[in-house]
Design a protein around this nucleic acid. Sequence first.
DNA 1: CGGCATCCATACAATAAAAGCATGGTAATA
DNA 2: TATTACCATGCTTTTATTGTATGGATGCCG
Lengths: 297, 297
Amino acid sequence: MDFKQLRYFLAVVEEGSISRAAREIPLAQPALTRQLRLLEESVGATLLERSRHGVSLTAAGSAFHREARRLLREFETAKHDARRIADGQLGQLRLGVTVMHLWVPQIVRLLNQFRQSYPDVSLKVQSLLSAPQVEALRHHQLDAGMLFFPPQDDDQLDSHCLYEDRLVLVVSKGSRLARHPPKTLAELTGEDFIWFERSATPVYHDKLIHAFQRRGFTPHVVQEGTDNATMLCLVAAGMGCTIMPEMTMTGAPEGVVSIALDDLDMVLPLMLVWRRDASLPAVRRLIDVAESLALSR
Amino acid sequence: MDFKQLRYFLAVVEEGSISRAAREIPLAQPALTRQLRLLEESVGATLLERSRHGVSLTAAGSAFHREARRLLREFETAKHDARRIADGQLGQLRLGVTVMHLWVPQIVRLLNQFRQSYPDVSLKVQSLLSAPQVEALRHHQLDAGMLFFPPQDDDQLDSHCLYEDRLVLVVSKGSRLARHPPKTLAELTGEDFIWFERSATPVYHDKLIHAFQRRGFTPHVVQEGTDNATMLCLVAAGMGCTIMPEMTMTGAPEGVVSIALDDLDMVLPLMLVWRRDASLPAVRRLIDVAESLALSR
DNA sequence: CGGCATCCATACAATAAAAGCATGGTAATA
DNA sequence: TATTACCATGCTTTTATTGTATGGATGCCG
């Protein structure tokens, strides 16, 4: 049983005649007659009333005709949609983003650009820290993630650097450090620091600590936080100073000031990460948009 | 492009393996591999991710799989429905009935029996006089009709007698005729008659007049009416007497009495009429029900 | 009234499509 | 390292579909 037979049937109904439909298709009339008979046999009902001046629909044929037309239309739609999904133009894309970056203009611009270029791909953005994103990617719960420090040389995951951020010192507006901006880490000896809790982002935390220790500097931590918004508020409240990726300063509260330090040159790459098997074509499109925007500082 | 390919695809998805699906179908594995490839070509997208331990759906394949399953299910439904329509078990039946008979218990019983036996055939009952029903039948605006005096030896229409009614004299309850019931038409000479307007039901009217004249009786008509309910009310109001099919007395108002006359023996057959081509199978079912109930007096 | 054109149906030959068979490559497993 | 299960490919056989020729029936028009 064949879609072809349905198409033949529609043509015959439209023409009101087997012969004329056969000329239109084109097909030899006996072949068409035969296919109609096969269709009727497979349906188990007479669909066409044969007469001298052509054929007309029976009641059953009329109902079947409506259904056949709908089925063919929907089949074409299904094929078209499958093509669009395979091309990354349609579907759903589950994207992980760290809270920290949801506010960053570059990321917002990227997401907006993607939405505009691929309006039929519905972006499901989830705010997750880096490590959970990696896990979710591996378990096919995310299709792409924006995170720091993806696993190196992973056989499943592939990544692309979206943006290379640098770190800045953040102090409260009225503080002594704001009035006399330091130039080096060494000048921060003895200052109170608000620091990321290690458990939240262990890789970031360890890399930062390591970078500082290489400069012979160990911060005096008076408070720990799990997200940058909270931490910036603590800084604004005068609890101490902190180190932040520069990007995240965009949404910072009023009472804080960022200061670039000469020897704080650690590069913090924000990576777009996805499964190497490229299981979801829309991910490729996201990578394309990211590359075309070239968010590099 | 083939429904068969869709079924193959579903089997493969269900089994998660081309080889296993091939064994299930059953089909040689290379044949299945080839049909899948053809399907993918026709869709224009890769639907299955081939690997060592079987196949899995791509994003496009997953969406297409849902659609394919739906399409196949709906195709089966369409076939099934067509069969049921062809068998008269499903669809719509437009039935004409004269107002006069809508109230008659025999007819009500017939319609109820039909509804019960064929609950999926929706009866669209239209109240029409006999002549308009014949016209509507010819123009395919009705599928069947219940009426008096269908055209004889019609090449389009066929008919079946539902019920042979007889005529009765109807008088008002308190009248002289009610107190001293006449036995023959001759006794009605000089009585005031309420009569059917000829234009409403010319055939019935003419036959009735003709039957009376054969008995040498000509009614003295004081009032004409187009429907029996009105006419019975006029009788009840004492305007005169009338002649009615006995059947229609069921719904008659309180103030009337019917009297059988010995020489008023004209038979009034209520006919079920339909197009001979039996274009609508449900009509055959209606005829069956009518015959099985055998409404004959 | 009788050719003529136009339907749809049938029979049979030609062609195209699908299936089967044999085989190969590859990766996981024991 | 041999085995097994998987999918892919080449070739042959079988099946399905189409085309050609033809027939019967009916309506049209000279």
